[in-house]
Design a protein around this nucleic acid. Structure first.
Length: 190
DNA sequence: AGGAAGATCTACT
DNA sequence: GTAGATCTTCCTA
């Protein structure tokens, strides 16, 4: 399968967020490869987005959002690591939060990392998927368009599905636009 | 030093 | 399904 190019991420965050649905998130470990289909995402903007990490301007912890698209942006919220990919037009600011995946390869290892009651709870949330895929701050800032990276995103198979959208989850003050996107009917949604 | 943050788990109705 | 405790950084005072 082909990797997504740098250009894919150099677009409006909402376009990238919808575009990432159905794509394959691949986590390379020393001994094995874990993967899953992206089924839920959210778009975040810069200064005019009160829910964005970049709302209060550029700081050391959020500077990745201001830099080149196609990198990971990982941070901690309520004790969970959340995985974003930096996505924005050239010179702009933004990111896409990956909220849920449908597990494909390495399910056993994921279950070792996290032990949910039901299988469908394995990766149906932003903090859950990072734990299942062993994603931590160590992977912050790596380039998901580089083959050598421990985290990459591939083109999915050409499945057809319907995209639904809603307001973002958990944010205090949301924008008037609906910026959460998910695959209709998928059971691995948060 | 204190508190907020894009969440999760558990234990109830 | 909803409620409350608790998870760990980094920001702000």
């Amino acid at each position: 399968m082909k990797m997504l190019s740098h250009d894919f991420y150099e677009r409006d965050p909402a376009l990238v967020a919808t575009g990432l649905l159905g794509k394959v998130l691949v986590r390379k470990l020393d001994a094995e490869v874990l993967s899953g289909i992206i089924v839920e995402t959210e778009a975040y903007y810069g200064r005019h987005d009160p829910a964005s990490r970049a709302y209060r301007g550029r700081k050391r912890f959020n500077e990745l959002m201001f830099m080149g698209a196609g990198k990971t942006f990982i941070y901690m919220v309520h004790g969970n690591w959340l995985l974003n990919t930096v996505a924005h037009l050239k010179g702009d600011v933004g990111a896409v939060l990956i909220r849920a995946i449908e597990p494909r390869k390495g399910i056993k290892t994921m279950q070792k990392n996290r032990n949910p009651k039901k299988l469908r709870d394995l990766t149906n949330g932003p903090g859950k998927l990072t734990k299942a895929l062993a994603i931590t701050k160590e992977l912050n800032g790596i380039d998901v368009t580089q083959k050598a990276s421990q985290l990459v995103i591939l083109e999915g198979e050409k499945e057809s599905f319907e995209v639904c959208f809603s307001h973002r989850i958990g944010v205090k003050i949301d924008l008037p636009r609906k910026l959460r996107f998910f695959v209709k009917g998928n059971r691995c949604i948060s």
